[in-house]
């Protein structure tokens, strides 16, 4: 019981201080998990990140589940994950309430119009970063262009693109070569 509480509090603390999630969390995980709590090693963290990238979902959540499970079984995995999302939940709900209350003010509208331009640039930057890791040859370029055209011109669910791209990857990499 004590270890579960410890897991929840430790991961909640990390969730509250990490901006940007995922990779931004790595140095904090190294300090808290490896050095302070000794729940895992640097090598294990590296493995968890590698697997977090090969599994669906949010990387910070995946890593929390891994460490929680290793420390206190399946229940530990669930508790650590709840801990890491708990601060987000509180902060976002508070902020969303405030933003909704003031969203009709003229200057707030101007501020968000400016912010949207910034969001465009942030998405563009995120794409550039992903692109260099994902598009590594002609075939991956082909998948990129096909899915891009499909997303822009066809009104289909992203789920469909994900399933087809995963299948295409297996066919190209395992069976055709």
């Amino acid at each position: 019981m004590k270890i579960l509480l410890d897991l929840f509090i430790t991961f909640a603390k990390m969730g509250a201080v990490t901006f940007g999630g995922g990779y931004a969390m790595l140095p904090i995980l190294q300090r808290e998990i490896v050095e302070n709590k000794k729940w895992g090693t640097d090598e294990e963290l590296a493995d968890y990140y590698a697997i977090g990238q090969c599994t669906p979902g949010v990387i910070a959540v995946n890593v929390a589940t891994f460490i929680g499970r290793k420390t206190a079984g399946n229940l530990g995995g669930v508790v650590a994950t709840l801990g890491v999302v708990f601060p987000s939940l509180m902060i976002i709900v508070l902020l969303a309430g405030v933003i909704q209350a003031y969203s009709s003010l003229e200057w707030v509208k101007h501020a968000f119009a400016g912010v949207r331009v910034c969001v465009c640039v942030l998405i563009f930057n995120a794409v550039i970063k992903l692109f260099s890791k994902a598009i590594i040859d002609r075939r991956t370029m082909g998948i990129y262009l096909l899915v891009l055209a499909g997303s822009v011109f066809l009104n289909l669910s992203p789920v469909l693109f994900v399933v087809m791209a995963g299948l295409a990857g297996v066919i190209l990499k395992v069976w055709v070569k």
């Binding site: 998948i143 262009l145 891009l148």
Partner: peptide, 15 residues
């Protein structure tokens, strides 16, 4: 293999 195909698809959908 699956992630070889999934990564470019994910990049495309974010684009």
């Amino acid at each position: 293999g699956a992630f070889y195909g999934l990564r470019p698809a994910s990049s495309a959908m974010i684009t």
